[in-house]
């Protein structure tokens, strides 16, 4: 029993980390197609902002809001100055955002210094079945789910969501119908930066906050987002993080951390290979296959009865 609880905890933990570290990117890359290599740096800005807010004497929650504001502001600024000019040439956004990531992380080092104090972690420990678990990590799980649900609602039920989806699928048509697509792009990019900054600030409760703090998250976030696919990015993100975290946790528990990491990457490769449009289509294909199989077995059994 203890083992099962422990596994469930690790699985949820791993899911939350994957989902939170990629949720900003799923907006920027998944919706807009911008290859944002500076994703991790937006997370870093969120963490730095939160650390500063806290040092200024703000309560922790407001400090985190400070971090989100910082990331959003820099995100919006970059969208206006740089990203906006790249919407027609998305592969080049890789080079430009790589440049931005160098400027941001090294700029933080020069202007602020090699590190800033971490944030205090107000959460305690909870004991289940004789094992101690971190409430902070459970909070991350709840947060990841809450954010995914909120995003889904935003896309599904609001005007912004409608316009955003229209802009991403048929920009010219949307424009013709009166959607101000440039504004939609800007808000979307800002939202992505805000979410990245939020994740960074939250991770800053339990990490050393340094200029290179975010760099490690960028490739992993890309993998989660590519596996999530382009059909329905929010549901895709949920499925992608759930599946990758399951593989990672299973192999980590069964073998070791390295095997877990490599198994996750290999799974991502397999999923992309089987279904370039993402995990949802793979699930769809598998379902179709299963029902085909079911109907064909049903068919043979019917024939058998007939023959009998």
């Amino acid at each position: 029993m203890g083992d099962i609880i422990s596994f469930a905890y690790q699985y949820a933990d791993s899911f939350a980390l994957l989902a939170l570290s990629s949720i900003g990117l799923v907006i920027i890359f998944g919706m807009m197609g911008v290859i944002n290599m500076a994703h991790g740096e937006f997370m870093m800005i969120g963490a730095f902002g939160a650390s500063f807010g806290f040092q200024w004497g703000l309560p922790l929650s407001l400090a985190i809001v400070t971090g989100v504001f910082a990331a959003t502001a820099i995100g919006l600024l970059l969208e206006r100055l740089v990203i906006r000019k790249l919407y027609g040439r998305l592969l080049y956004s890789l080079v430009a955002t790589w440049g931005i990531s160098l400027v941001l992380s090294q700029g933080a080092l020069v202007l602020i210094g090699p590190s800033v104090p971490s944030l205090p972690n107000p959460f305690g420990t909870v004991s289940v079945g004789g094992m101690n678990f971190s409430v902070y990590r459970l909070f991350l799980v709840a947060l990841a789910i809450a954010l995914i649900v909120t995003l889904w609602a935003l896309m599904r039920f609001t005007n912004f969501g409608l316009h955003a989806r229209a802009t991403m699928t048929e920009p010219d048509m949307a424009e013709a119908l009166g959607v101000r697509t440039t504004r939609i792009y800007m808000v979307t990019f800002g939202l992505g930066a805000a979410l990245a900054g939020f994740a960074g600030a939250i991770f800053g409760l339990s990490a050393q906050i340094q200029p290179t703090f975010g760099a490690a998250y960028t490739p992993i976030a890309f993998i989660v987002v590519v596996v999530a696919g382009s059909r329905n990015i929010i549901a895709g993100l949920l499925a992608s993080a759930l599946v990758l975290a399951l593989v990672k946790t299973s192999f980590t528990v069964g073998f070791n951390i390295l095997t877990g990491y490599v198994a996750m990457l290999v799974t991502a490769l397999i999923i992309i290979r089987l279904s370039p449009t993402g995990i949802l289509d793979l699930i769809g294909k598998l379902k179709a296959l299963a029902s085909q199989h079911r109907s064909s077995t049903a068919g043979t059994s019917a024939e058998e009865t007939k023959n009998a």
Partner: peptide, 19 residues
């Protein structure tokens, strides 16, 4: 004895093992 890959920042499995 656990070896932790460079750059790894997730320790929930190690912590469970230690516990």
């Amino acid at each position: 004895l656990e070896f932790i890959p460079l750059g790894n920042s997730e320790f929930s499995s190690s912590i469970a093992n230690i516990q």
